[in-house]
Computed example of a mutant assay.
Amino acid sequence: MLSYQHAFHAGNHADVIKHLCWIGVINSLKKKDKAFTLYDTHAGAGSYDFNEAMSAKNKEYESGISKLVQHGAKSSLLRDYLNLCEPFLSSDHYPGSPALSAEAKRESDTLHAMELHPAEFDKLEINIAKLNKSHCHVHKRDGFEGLRALTPPKPNRGAILIDPPYEREVEYQDVVKGIEQVLKRWQQAQIVIWYPLLSARAGNKHGASERMCAKLAELGRPCFKAEICVAENTTDAGMYGSGVLVINPPWQLNEQLENALDETITLMGEHASVKIAWVNQDN
């Protein structure tokens, strides 16, 4: 149940789409002076050393962030992402979403990063403390329980990032239930949900992301999906890509993300592609 450690996958294509989208949400929140609160339900270790055994085993960052570092970004969102990553990359580290949040938010804004895995939480606590940023709180707790306890924030502005490992099939249902509960109390919450795109090799989890997104769409909130594929969806492909579903997205985030991802996929191989589509549009 608590076996997943993100270090094996740090900086891969899934992190790229997830973190591009999340930074786009934060950038939008920063356009107004009023403070906001960020929630990270599955925070992980916060930062990952490419030279440590787990990250070095598969070197997934080589097909993700490493493809982008020497690229002169034209998209403002891609440029912001790379600028936030650069101080970490210069010391062979990749910033997880809590570190990116801490660096991107303003002094007046608040971050709540939640992680239940004991070893990951210990690293998270150390890595966030090293950043020496104000109003950054780490919690050793279940992320969905944390959302129930900590939302809505005051003032009533902010966003939630949800990216479970989806090791167990029930986690897809947990996401739907957790978001249903949040939206009952905090209807205007901006929510980014990351999900994997899995081939038939995944067995029962094949198609689970698509079913989860369909259930979330039934909640009736404005939302769009953005997906990046890095391999052909053959029977044996495994995870051939990933996506984000954004609920209550800020204005023009879909366009900003599309520009950034269109630029990104040109660097990720012949099978790389991107698709962005509204699921529910605001009336």
Rank of each mutant, 00 (worst) to 15 (best):
H9I: 15
H9P: 09
A10P: 02
A10W: 01
G11V: 12
N12G: 05
N12E: 03
H13D: 00
H13A: 07
H13P: 06
A14S: 08
A14Q: 01
D15I: 04
I17G: 07
I17Y: 01
K18C: 03
K18Y: 01
K18A: 02
H19E: 04
L20H: 02
C21Q: 11
C21R: 07
W22N: 03
W22D: 06
I23D: 03
I23L: 14
I23W: 00
G24D: 02
G24F: 03
V25M: 02
I26H: 10
N27F: 00
N27Y: 05
N27V: 06
N27Q: 15
L29N: 03
L29G: 05
L29M: 05
K30N: 11
K31S: 13
K31W: 00
K32D: 06
K32L: 10
K34L: 10
A35G: 05
F36Y: 15
L38C: 08
L38W: 02
D40A: 07
D40I: 01
T41Y: 10
T41D: 03
T41R: 10
T41I: 04
H42P: 10
A43P: 09
A43G: 03
A43W: 02
G44E: 01
A45S: 15
G46T: 00
G46Y: 00
S47I: 02
S47C: 15
Y48I: 06
Y48H: 11
D49E: 09
F50V: 10
F50Y: 15
N51R: 11
E52C: 09
A53T: 10
A53M: 11
M54R: 12
M54G: 04
S55R: 06
S55Q: 07
A56S: 12
A56C: 11
A56G: 12
K57S: 13
K57L: 00
N58P: 07
K59C: 14
E60M: 04
E60H: 11
E60F: 09
Y61V: 07
Y61W: 13
S63D: 13
G64F: 03
I65C: 01
I65K: 04
I65N: 12
K67A: 05
L68H: 02
L68K: 08
V69K: 12
V69D: 08
Q70P: 05
H71K: 06
G72F: 08
G72S: 14
A73S: 15
A73N: 03
K74A: 14
S75M: 02
S75Q: 04
S76A: 15
S76W: 06
